[in-house]
Design a protein around this nucleic acid. Structure first.
Lengths: 130, 130
DNA sequence: TAACTATATTTGCTTAAACGAATATACTGA
DNA sequence: TCAGTATATTCGTTTAAGCAAATATAGTTA
């Protein structure tokens, strides 16, 4: 219950919502890509990602130097339902089209490694971009 | 978008979650009933209700001296989806069984007016209590 | 009108959250 | 093992949120 409030706290910040949304849209992103897309400082992105992770909204994995973040995989039925709701709300509110546009640009530029070495493993981006 | 963060802010506090949950469980409640059930000060309840109302999570209506609060009626398709998600999450997390138990006691005592003059109009309580 | 009840708002204080700058850690390749 | 890159954490400061106590407002009843 305090845990639920904690999840909502994690969602109660525009920067984190935007970060979560862009992670959801791309499937998986490294920190420096998020920095580039949002124009946030490294510190800020990292701090917010830690916050989202603590609330079990994102998972991370290391790939060499890079930490890659994706939407959390559900750990229980309750958790799955929560994550589904969050995804549905983000998608319905079409939060940050501008961020997604920048994401698309970065992909074309081949920014960082996410879009070259790593991307093949993750969700196809073209599905969500227009 | 800032609006969405605002909604999550409204949910990002344990007191407000408990209040919202008890309103959802009862159908409709006046301020003094919430005070009694939660053991919160009048100021605190009123402030949190104002917060929930600003975020369009609850509606209010006046009934004589009493202000009665209920879950918001959806004003748009997006809004409906959001409210449904919030309800589903609250129900799945069975947030505050103890509050609901106290609510049930108060009903038997006939606390305030909510349960006498006004209650007939609102959702039958027995459905949600056990 | 006046006294009363339920609720809302203001004030002043304390605690938490966000931020940038600086520093630390983790991994890589020479 | 050293230099370099990506990310995480700490520190000090500023801003927001929660609270209780006091006060204000709105409706009721006499």
């Amino acid at each position: 219950m305090q845990k639920l409030a904690q999840v909502f706290k994690a969602l109660a910040d525009e920067s984190r919502l935007r970060i979560l949304n862009i992670i959801l849209a791309s499937g998986e992103l490294c920190v420096c890509d998020i920095e580039a897309i949002m124009g946030f400082s490294q510190t800020k992105v990292s701090r917010h990602l830690a916050y989202l992770k603590r609330a079990r909204l994102v998972d991370d994995r290391r790939q060499g130097l890079w930490m890659l973040y994706s939407m959390a995989k559900p750990k229980s039925e309750e958790h799955r339902q929560l994550l589904d709701c969050v995804k549905a709300i983000l998608e319905a509110n079409a939060v940050t089209k501008r961020d997604v546009a920048r994401l698309s640009k970065n992909i074309k530029k081949g920014c960082c490694v996410t879009f070259t070495a790593v991307r093949p493993n993750s969700i196809p981006l073209t599905l969500k971009l227009n």
